[in-house]
Design a protein around this nucleic acid. Structure first.
Length: 272
DNA sequence: AGACGTACCTGACCGC
DNA sequence: TGCGGTCAGGTACGTC
């Protein structure tokens, strides 16, 4: 699930539990996810007060009053559970407990996620963020920006939109959706898309992300409940996961695979 | 440099 | 019921 909207709603869901709270208990139940945890993770967090929660691209940021930021990435299967009633399971890897006795538990079966502790003042230079492109919902993400960023690039537009150095936070689902909304073929060479069509694309990206955050916000309430489990995100997608179904135009939605990744699209609506 | 494929890991699902 | 194959939101790295 976790693309930008899911990380955004996750961070929003952590705010009432963690913001302004002191972390009285921090437990790493294994030493790594995709990468090793910082060895001093526990010492640096225990006793610290959370002073802010933010998101950058698909990363969640938890700032403490010690000048550290806990940076989490959910990978493919990560999620935070709030005050779980069941005993912790094998995929519950990391626990933050506040002085109020509330718990946030990071669960990640596939373990493609990550946890890092970065000095808050140096976040901009942190490796993953240093070369990252603009936030798609920010003012810096415009048709002019995209035009310049894609100039001369022969790779398909879909691959470019997944490249976090071009724009940071999009994943497979929302790229498919945005390209469909904008009527652009996923295989179109990125550097050969006209400015007016890039304008449509930028608008489509902002619209689909905003709508997904809105939808995620409504289901997160269920998610944050003790019983956990999902609903998570309503499937109102136009093409993603809809191979063989009919597009709004009447034509069939197709799926193709490149580099092991599925692309869903409508050949009629997305000719070029 | 850029484009592309593969690896990482587990669980869900499908057909036999 | 069990078993093997396929697929899944992510990024990083190797190779041409």
């Amino acid at each position: 699930m976790p693309e930008l909207p899911e990380v955004e709603t996750t961070v929003q869901g952590l705010v009432p539990v963690l913001e302004g709270r002191r972390l009285t208990n921090v437990e790493a139940r294994r030493a790594d996810l995709r990468r090793a945890f910082p060895p001093d993770l526990r010492q640096r967090l225990t006793g610290a007060r959370v002073v802010g929660l933010h998101r950058r691209a698909k990363y969640g940021l938890i700032d403490t009053d010690r000048g550290d930021t806990l940076v989490f990435h959910l990978g493919m299967s990560g999620r935070w559970r709030i005050d779980p009633e069941e005993p912790l399971g094998p995929h519950d890897h990391f626990v933050l407990e506040t002085e109020e006795g509330r718990r946030a538990v990071l669960n990640d079966p596939r373990r493609f996620g990550s946890l890092d502790l970065v000095p808050t003042a140096a976040l901009g230079e942190w490796e993953a963020f240093a070369k990252m492109g603009p936030e798609p919902l920010g003012d810096g993400f415009t048709a002019d920006y995209l035009l310049a960023a894609l100039a001369g690039r022969s790779a398909p537009i879909k691959a470019m939109l997944l490249d976090q150095r071009i724009v940071a936070g999009l994943g497979n689902i929302y790229v498919c959706e945005a390209l469909h909304m904008a009527g652009i073929s996923p295989t179109r060479a990125a550097g050969r898309i006209s400015r007016p069509r890039l304008e449509r694309l930028v608008e489509a990206i902002k619209a689909v992300l905003a709508a997904a955050i809105e939808a995620g916000g409504s289901t997160l309430r269920d998610y944050a409940r003790p019983s956990g489990e999902l609903g998570y995100f309503a499937k109102q997608w136009r093409v993603y996961g809809r191979e063989g179904e009919s597009c709004g135009c009447g034509g069939p939605v197709r799926r193709r695979v490149d580099s092991g990744r599925s692309t869903f699209y409508c050949p009629r609506c997305q000719r070029v």
